[in-house]
């Protein structure tokens, strides 16, 4: 009985020890971040080092551009391969191989993704392809987009498998072609879950910094061009946090708070949608 109580106590202690850093991190983010947030933070670009003021408008816009490019790559490829896995490939060798490769891709460190995007887009200089050969938002977006694919793919597959077979039969029984019934019935029925998966992937890459270090590079000025180096929120947080200026540290905390609020919102939304059940009202 003594061991029993001791083990219970240890398990409770472990849980507290795990929750503690979370409380710590959020606490500091709120305390340090909130005090440096103001209107200027959202509408101004950074000022030169050592000066006071300025904002991170360029980083927020840059993150938007990068995530837009990433979604353009990651979402269609991910959903497409998820549809393949759930609708066409069930039990086939190819499907098992794709599923497996997606898991492998999911485990590839983000820094390696950055090296790849660098080698693909920043490194080669091709005469008639002006978007190659230099640091650019495109390179960063490609790195992030590739990272989105496995998450989107696997969650799309899982959600499609949850759609009852009877719904597919109903559509096929009406003489609806397979592609139409897949897109308009199966995918549409599973769409809350699929959107959830996309949000998860989005939240994951939104905070990624490592693959952007030598692809998007960062930018002190306002830029939304796909072809130029671009600022990103996590990149800016990193640059500010390792700078020697107190004011930039303050900006870093503010940026971190904005970033975490966005991510927690996305994750909570996901939690809310999945807990309500993907296929609500389906008896």
């Amino acid at each position: 009985m003594v061991t029993d109580h001791a083990v219970t106590a240890l398990a409770v202690l472990a849980t507290i020890l795990v929750i503690l850093p979370l409380a710590f991190i959020f606490g500091y983010l709120l305390i340090k971040g909130a005090s440096s947030l103001n209107l200027n933070f959202f509408i101004k670009v950074p000022v030169p080092e050592g000066e006071l003021g300025g904002g991170m408008a360029n980083a927020i816009a840059g993150s938007g551009v990068l995530l837009g490019i990433a979604s353009l790559i990651g979402v269609p490829l991910g959903i497409g391969s998820g549809i393949f896995l759930a609708e066409f490939g069930r039990g086939t060798r190819l499907a098992n191989a794709v599923r497996f490769t997606a898991d492998v891709l999911n485990g590839v460190p983000s820094i390696v993704m950055g090296v790849t995007a660098y080698a693909l887009i920043v490194f080669p200089r091709v005469r008639f392809l002006p978007f190659l050969g230099h640091f650019s938002a495109l390179a960063g977006g490609v790195a992030l987009g590739i990272m989105m694919i496995p998450t989107v793919c696997r969650s799309t597959e899982e959600m499609l498998l949850m759609v009852p077979h009877s719904i597919r039969e109903a559509a096929l029984g009406l003489g609806v072609p397979n592609w139409r019934s897949t897109l308009s019935i199966t995918v549409k029925t599973a769409s809350p879950g699929i959107i959830t998966g996309c949000m998860l992937a989005f939240a994951r890459v939104a905070g990624e910094t490592a693959p952007l270090l030598f692809t998007a590079l960062g930018n002190e000025f306002w830029s939304t061009s796909v072809n130029d180096p671009i600022a990103a929120l996590p990149l800016q947080i990193f640059n500010y946090s390792i700078s020697p200026y107190e004011d930039q540290h303050r900006m870093a905390w503010g940026g971190a708070l904005v970033l975490i609020v966005l991510i927690v919102l996305a994750v909570s939304l996901v939690r809310f949608v999945t807990s309500r059940g993907v296929l609500k009202g389906n008896s």
Partner: peptide, 18 residues
């Protein structure tokens, strides 16, 4: 597809599109 458009089917369990 052509056959199923001419031969309607009602299944054992009601399966409206949710």
């Amino acid at each position: 597809v052509e056959i199923r458009r001419r031969v309607g089917m009602v299944f054992q369990r009601p399966n409206p599109f949710p």
